[in-house]
C-alpha cells in the first residue's frame, strides 16, 4: 500500500466555479454552495483519492486559489512547488477560456522545470444553452498542453469526481515510473 501526497493547485478566472468544484471534490459531490462568495486568498482542502483496482491512494492538498487579479500575487506565494494543476474555465465565457494559458503559465513558473500533470476543466456544463466554448475546441487546446479535458457541473453534481481522479492517476503513474527507474540504479 502506498499513500502519495500531492499539492494540487486550482486556478482560473474569478467566478468560474473553482470553489464550488473544490467543495464537490472534497464532499464527493455532496455539497453545492449556492451563494457566490469570492475567494480572496487560498483555501486549503484535503481529499484522499483511491486509485481504482489498487489499495493505493493519493492525498490531495487542494489549494483553491483566488481568481481575481488583485489577489493573485499573494496567492502565488502559497503555492510552493505544485505536484498537479487544475485549470478551470466557465463554458459560457469565452474570456475565461482564453485566460487559461496565462493561468497555466503562472503555475508552471513555480514548477522548477518539473513535469506536472494537469487537467483542464470546463465547468457549468448545465448551462449548455449559453455555451461559448465548444468542447472540441477546449479538448484540442488541452491536448496541445498535455492536459486531460473534463466537463463538469458543480451545480448538477455532474462528473465532478473526474478531474481529481485523473490527476491522482497521472501522479500515481509518475510515481511508479520513477520508482522503477530508481530501482534500476541501486
Amino acid at each position: 500500500m502506498v499513500k502519495l501526497r500531492a499539492r494540487c493547485i486550482i486556478v482560473g478566472d474569478a467566478a468560474v466555479g473553482k470553489s464550488a468544484l473544490s467543495q464537490m471534490f472534497r464532499s464527493d459531490g455532496g455539497h453545492f454552495q449556492k451563494n457566490y462568495s469570492m475567494t480572496a486568498g487560498v483555501e486549503l482542502l484535503l481529499k484522499s483519492v483511491n486509485i481504482p483496482e489498487t489499495s493505493d491512494s493519493v492525498g490531495q492538498y487542494i489549494f483553491d486559489s483566488a481568481g481575481r487579479e488583485t489577489f493573485v500575487g499573494a496567492c502565488e506565494k502559497m503555492w510552493g512547488q505544485p505536484s498537479v494543476v487544475c485549470v478551470v474555465f466557465d463554458i459560457t465565457s469565452l474570456a475565461s477560456f482564453n485566460s487559461c494559458s496565462r493561468w497555466l503559465e503562472r503555475v508552471r513558473a513555480h514548477c522548477n522545470g518539473l513535469q506536472v500533470p494537469g487537467v483542464l476543466v470546463g465547468n457549468k456544463s448545465d448551462l449548455s444553452s449559453r455555451r461559448e466554448v465548444e468542447a472540441a475546441v477546449a479538448q484540442e487546446w488541452a491536448q496541445s498542453q498535455g492536459l486531460q479535458y473534463h466537463e463538469t457541473s458543480a451545480k448538477d453534481m455532474e462528473n465532478c469526481d473526474a478531474p481529481l481522479l485523473s490527476l491522482a492517476q497521472a501522479f500515481y503513474s509518475l510515481y511508479q515510473d520513477r520508482r522503477q527507474m530508481i530501482q534500476g540504479l541501486g
Binding site: R5, A6, G186
Partner: peptide, 13 residues
Amino acid sequence: GKTETFWMSTGMF
C-alpha cells in the same frame, strides 16, 4: 547497509 534497497518519498517537501 545496501544501496540496492531504498526508501522513497511519496510526494511533497
